[in-house]
Design a protein around this nucleic acid. Structure first.
Length: 219
DNA sequence: GCGACAG
DNA sequence: ATCTTGTCGC
C-alpha cells in the first residue's frame, strides 16, 4: 500500500511534543471503518544492538484469522525510548513495512497505547492519523490512567480514566491472566474496539495479530 | 521534591 | 524491548 511518510522526524523531545499536540487534533474518535475483512497487527523489535529497529506487519483474514500477507522492514533507530514518545522510535520502520503490503488492512491493532496517553496521541493514534487507517491500541501494561478492580473472567472490562475522561479500557482477554490495556487509535469507538480485540483473541492473552507480528519482528 | 513510566 | 531454564498453576 502507498503511504505518505513525513519529510523528517523530530530530533528532540520538544519537537516531538509539538508534533503530538498538532496531530492529536486529527484523531477521529468515532466509528468510521469499512466492513472488516482483513485485520493487521504491527510490532517492532530490536535485533543485534539497539541501533536497528525491525518492524513487522501481519495481515489476517477476519473473522477467520488466517495469515494472508506479511512484511518486515528495518531502519536505523532514530529516537531513544522515552515513555510518552514510543511512536517516534517505532513508526519509521512500521511505515516501511506497511508500504510493502499487498493487502490493505481494514483495521490495525498496534502494540502500545492509543488515546491512553499523556497528550492523547499514543502510537496507535499516531499511526492511524499518518496512514488514515482505523487503529486500536493494545498494550500489555499501563502508561497512564486508573481503574476499578477487574473480575477474573475473560471478557470483563473496566473503564481506564485519566484527568476526568475515559481514555480506554482494561480488558481481561483471558480468565485469570493479566489484562490488556485497550484504547482507540483512529476512526473507531471504544465499544467497537473492545469487540474487535475480543474477536481477534480466541485463545491466548494477546490477539492473534499481535502474536504473529511479534514473532516476525523479533526474528 | 518524589514516584511513575507503552516498548 | 532484551538477556534466559525450569517451574508453578489453571
Amino acid at each position: 500500500m502507498k503511504i505518505e511518510k513525513p519529510q523528517s522526524w523530530p530530533q528532540t523531545v520538544e519537537e516531538a511534543k509539538a508534533i503530538q499536540e498538532e496531530l492529536r487534533r486529527q484523531v477521529i474518535r468515532e466509528d468510521d471503518l469499512p466492513t472488516v475483512r482483513y485485520v493487521a497487527g504491527v510490532d517492532a523489535g530490536y535485533p543485534e544492538q539497539n541501533n536497528l529497529t525491525q518492524a513487522a506487519v501481519a495481515v489476517l483474514s477476519f473473522p477467520e484469522l488466517q495469515l494472508c500477507d506479511q512484511a518486515i522492514a528495518r531502519c536505523p533507530t532514530h529516537f531513544p525510548y522515552i515513555p510518552g514518545f514510543l511512536s517516534f522510535r517505532e513508526i519509521p520502520a512500521v511505515l516501511e513495512a506497511l508500504e510493502q503490503l499487498t493487502i490493505v488492512p481494514d483495521l490495525l491493532l498496534c502494540d502500545g497505547q492509543g488515546l491512553a496517553h499523556p497528550r492523547r496521541l499514543g502510537i496507535a493514534c499516531h499511526l492511524g492519523v499518518l496512514t488514515n487507517l482505523p487503529t486500536i491500541g493494545v498494550a500489555k501494561s499501563r502508561l497512564i490512567g486508573t481503574h476499578d478492580a477487574l473480575p477474573p473472567e475473560r471478557g470483563s472490562w473496566q473503564p481506564l480514566r485519566d484527568r476526568g475522561e475515559t481514555v480506554g479500557a482494561v480488558l481481561r482477554s483471558r480468565s485469570h491472566v493479566n489484562p490488556l490495556y485497550i484504547s482507540i487509535g483512529h476512526r473507531i469507538s471504544l465499544p467497537t474496539a473492545l469487540d474487535y480485540v475480543m474477536r481477534c483473541t480466541p485463545k491466548y492473552r494477546l490477539p492473534e495479530t499481535t502474536r504473529i507480528s511479534d514473532r516476525l519482528a523479533s526474528s
